[in-house]
Simulated scan of single mutants.
Amino acid sequence: MAKNKVLRMHNVGIVVESLDEAISFFSELGLQLEGRAMIEGEWAGRVTGLNSQQVEIAMMVTPDGHSRLEISRFLNPTTVADHRNAPVNSLGYLRVMFTVENLDELLVRLSKHGAQLVGEVVQYENVYRLCYIRGPEGILIGLAEELGNE
């Protein structure tokens, strides 16, 4: 008898103060807005354990259609902690990493949306060029450009 297993990852959730800024940033990165909605009521609170809640969400999908970001802005209850500027060696979720094309050009475009390089762009053997950036509201994002796949 086969064991049940995960089929795929559906999404990664990120909580922000400005949904519009986050949508703009991730759109520049290449994700598409799949939908935007208000999630509220007792049923939603039963899932999150927050009782009654009011949350505006935006679902963004990667160009290949396989991965999603659920970006949330909590109206009620308000946020209780802020991990946006935690260093990369903090416990808990670290970052989302995207495979990208033309890393240098993308960094210039994202800087116009407030992105800042965390350290520097480095090359790992002849496989990847990698970097971490802080996006809107200090969200940590990893970018990886595959090398040698022309």
Results as ranks from 00 to 15, higher is better:
residue 115 A to L: 00
residue 122 V to R: 14
residue 100 V to G: 05
residue 92 G to F: 07
residue 97 M to F: 09
residue 107 L to V: 00
residue 100 V to N: 03
residue 120 E to D: 13
residue 91 L to C: 08
residue 121 V to M: 03
residue 105 E to N: 11
residue 114 G to S: 10
residue 87 P to N: 10
residue 121 V to E: 00
residue 102 N to P: 05
residue 116 Q to D: 00
residue 89 N to Q: 12
residue 113 H to G: 14
residue 105 E to T: 15
residue 87 P to I: 08
residue 104 D to F: 04
residue 117 L to G: 01
residue 89 N to M: 06
residue 106 L to V: 15
residue 84 R to Q: 12
residue 121 V to G: 01
residue 111 S to H: 04
residue 103 L to R: 09
residue 109 R to H: 06
residue 83 H to Q: 04
residue 95 R to F: 04
residue 96 V to G: 05
residue 114 G to V: 09
residue 91 L to F: 12
residue 111 S to D: 03
residue 90 S to D: 05
residue 109 R to D: 04
residue 96 V to Q: 14
residue 98 F to H: 12
residue 113 H to V: 02
residue 120 E to N: 08
residue 84 R to H: 13
residue 109 R to L: 05
residue 101 E to S: 13
residue 110 L to V: 00
residue 99 T to E: 15
residue 103 L to T: 03
residue 106 L to Y: 04
residue 108 V to T: 07
residue 97 M to I: 06
residue 84 R to K: 10
residue 94 L to H: 09
residue 116 Q to P: 00
residue 106 L to K: 10
residue 85 N to T: 09
residue 92 G to V: 07
residue 114 G to F: 15
residue 87 P to A: 08
residue 110 L to G: 01
residue 105 E to H: 06
residue 119 G to H: 04
residue 95 R to K: 06
residue 120 E to A: 08
residue 119 G to N: 07
residue 93 Y to F: 10
residue 93 Y to D: 06
residue 121 V to Y: 02
residue 117 L to P: 00
residue 107 L to H: 06
residue 113 H to F: 05
residue 111 S to A: 05
residue 83 H to M: 04
residue 100 V to S: 05
residue 83 H to A: 02
residue 92 G to M: 08
residue 87 P to H: 09
residue 99 T to A: 15
residue 89 N to S: 10
residue 95 R to V: 07
residue 106 L to G: 10
residue 94 L to M: 09
residue 122 V to M: 12
